[in-house]
């Protein structure tokens, strides 16, 4: 819970900065978030030292790692672009997700199926990919808010505070590109693990379920297709930045569906908790 409070404190600072646009408050907001990330890094580092691997197994561990990756991804964008306005949209997500983690239990040991190198690659890459997609979603939403103000010729709060549409579009496509590459790596890692699992975990009842018809795998593939098409159409066809922003939001909705309800209630291949 203290970590969630730190993210909440960072959110408050970003709201304050969003309202006042005072540079000092902006730097204080960044420092607060950086402090929260450092504490989070220390916490995850302690788990990693204890377990021998990052605590990505189980919902609480996976979500906490996801939150950390999202915070790091956001901070890297903030530092490179010097744009802090997006922070007010990202930090509440961090605080809420981390608060959810505090109600669950972190893993205390490494499950047998997590021992192989491809599983860590699969899970780690996918978590980072989803963090990138979450960031792209937030940026996409802010793009649409600003787009709406500019299009309706009523410049308001977002006009005054958000970076330009061009910058938001670049951020969005950068996040999607990184996310899609990591998603590809993650899916490839999963496929490689599955090839070995056929021999090493032949008796695991989940392994035969890992086919293209499994809802979780199907939605992961759909996510890969959505973001892949977004990148392709943006690169080679006339996909407008606004539609790209919409696709970032749509893609992350699919990610959320896959991450939560599908994984819990429908998928039979990934019940590891």
């Amino acid at each position: 819970m203290p970590l969630a409070l730190l993210y909440l404190l960072a959110f408050s600072a970003y709201v304050w900065h969003f309202a006042t646009r005072h540079p000092l408050i902006g730097r204080a907001a960044t420092a607060t978030l950086l402090g929260a990330v450092l504490v989070h890094t220390f916490q995850l580092g302690m788990y990693t030292m204890e377990l021998g691997l990052p605590p990505m197994a189980g919902s609480a561990g996976a979500i906490s790692t996801f939150v950390w990756m999202l915070a790091v991804a956001y901070l890297s964008i903030e530092v490179t672009t010097e744009e802090r306005a997006i922070g007010v949209f990202v930090t509440p997500l961090l605080a809420v997700l981390q608060a959810l983690v505090s109600r669950g239990t972190m893993p205390t040991d490494i499950p047998a199926y997590f021992a192989g190198p491809f599983v860590a690659l699969h899970v780690g890459a996918l978590l980072f990919a989803y963090a990138s997609f979450a960031l792209a979603c937030v940026i996409g939403i802010t793009y649409m808010l600003l787009f709406r103000e500019l299009k309706t010729r009523t410049p308001g709060v977002f006009f005054q505070r958000l970076p330009s549409l061009q910058v938001l579009d670049q951020m969005n496509m950068r996040a999607v590109t990184i996310g899609w590459v990591l998603l590809t790596i993650g899916l490839a890692g999963g496929a490689l693990w599955l090839r070995d699992a056929g021999v090493q975990s032949a008796n695991d009842p989940r392994v035969p379920m890992m086919t293209a018809t499994d809802p979780k795998i199907l939605l992961a593939a759909l996510t890969w297709v959505i973001y892949g098409l977004q990148l392709a159409f943006r690169r080679w066809a006339s996909l407008t930045p606004r539609r790209a922003a919409w696709l970032s939001t749509l893609g992350f909705i699919v990610v959320l569906l896959n991450f939560l309800p599908v994984a819990y209630f429908f998928a039979r291949s990934h019940n590891f908790a």
Binding site: L146, L150, P155, F159, P163, S164, L165, Q166, V167
Partner: peptide
């Protein structure tokens, strides 16, 4: 100002 908000640089 509007142009900058659309195109940035």
């Amino acid at each position: 100002t509007l142009a900058r908000k659309i195109f940035g640089d």
